[in-house]
């Protein structure tokens, strides 16, 4: 009997390549000004799901992302790499969600899929680095979590138990628990498989034109195959039965008060000549004021 696997992924601005207008005046991120990429650890989470599917025949990998319509790109990428089902959770009323409101919406979307055995996501996203959405989603689903995992040591679908290796300070621990569970995956294990050329040809024109009403509620049990078009489900706030008050800005207890660009402090630097004498004087001064020695 296969397992139902749900992977939560996020499209993020590439924080390694920040340019001028990265922030809007209201303090929120100006995503339009940044190159958007698949959050790196989420790719490892996706790979972990594929690894489980490979070892437990009949398993299905569902990928969910919440974001603007352009986030469809990470879903297409997921299809290229082997996802069985993908859905974009998108609605203006989700805008400006903090981690609490985000995890609430994800929980509603997961419940729309229905039965699940393992929920996976990257440990953290490189835009916020909070590592909060995984544990918060687990709590909202009322299930256990194992965070920061790099390896699945053992998975027994019959006994419904899993043991995963989790990174901790200076080492690791192996934690065993029952299913269902939420796993957050770090970047140390599960090197992502590349997109498949054949699947890229199949899904390159995949769109979200299919409305939420078209989503086949029996899909999970029918074993229906995805078609080569209209394969990306689009779920709005109503489709996932979410309470608007708990979504977006109104569902977010945290507010951004202000944003400061990092400015280098310059208290005046003394340039020291690269000579024995000048370096000697500096060392002498540092010894005299007890900075050294």
């Amino acid at each position: 009997m296969g397992l139902n696997l749900i992977v939560l992924v996020k499209q993020v601005p590439d924080t390694q390549n920040i340019s001028g207008n990265a922030m809007k005046e209201d303090g929120t991120v100006n995503r339009a000004a940044l190159p958007a990429i698949f959050n790196p650890e989420d790719l490892h989470a996706l790979e972990a799901a594929f690894t489980i599917r490979d070892s437990v025949p009949g398993s299905k990998v569902h990928v969910l992302t919440m974001g603007p319509p352009s986030a469809v790109q990470v879903l297409k990428d997921s299809l290229y790499r082997g996802a069985d089902f993908v859905a974009l959770i998108s609605d203006r009323r989700f805008a400006a969600a903090d981690t609490l409101a985000t995890s609430y919406a994800l929980k509603c979307a997961i419940e729309k899929i229905g039965s699940y055995d393992i929920v996976l996501c990257g440990t953290q996203a490189i835009d916020g680095d909070t590592a909060q959405v995984g544990p918060q989603t687990a709590e909202k689903l009322g299930i256990n979590q194992i965070t920061c995992i790099s390896q699945i040591v053992e998975l027994d679908p019959e006994k419904r138990s899993i043991t995963a290796r989790r990174s901790i300070e200076g080492g690791y621990e192996k934690v065993k628990t029952g299913l269902p569970v939420l796993l957050t995956v770090n970047g140390e294990g599960f090197p992502p498989r590349p997109p498949s050329a054949i699947r890229m040809m199949t899904y390159k024109n995949a769109t979200t034109e299919m409305s939420s009403a078209d989503y086949d509620e029996t899909y999970l049990t029918s074993g229906a195959e995805l078609k080569s078009e209209n394969t990306i489900a689009l779920w709005d706030i109503n489709a996932i039965n979410a309470d608007p008050e708990s979504c977006g800005l109104s569902g977010s207890p945290t507010k951004v008060r202000n944003i400061d660009m990092v400015v280098l402090k310059s208290e005046g630097i003394r340039m020291i000549e690269n000579t024995e004498e000048a370096i000697g004087d500096m060392v002498h001064e540092l010894v005299a004021d007890h900075t050294l020695g």
């Binding site: 903090d98 981690t99 609490l100 995890s103 916020g128 680095d129 909070t130 590592a131 909060q132 959405v133 995984g134 544990p135 918060q136 687990a138 709590e139 909202k140 979590q145 965070t147 920061c148 989790r166 990174s167 901790i168 300070e169 977010s252 207890p253 945290t254 507010k255 008060r257």
Partner: peptide
């Protein structure tokens, strides 16, 4: 790893805000 594992679960259970990885904390008006 422990604090980052438990704090979000508690925040979710209490439905309160949580800010990760602070480098400074101050008191002020908003």
């Amino acid at each position: 790893t422990t604090g980052r594992d438990i704090a979000p679960r508690i925040a979710s259970a209490l439905r309160v805000g949580l800010t990760a990885d602070c480098t400074d904390l101050q008191i002020g008006d908003y």
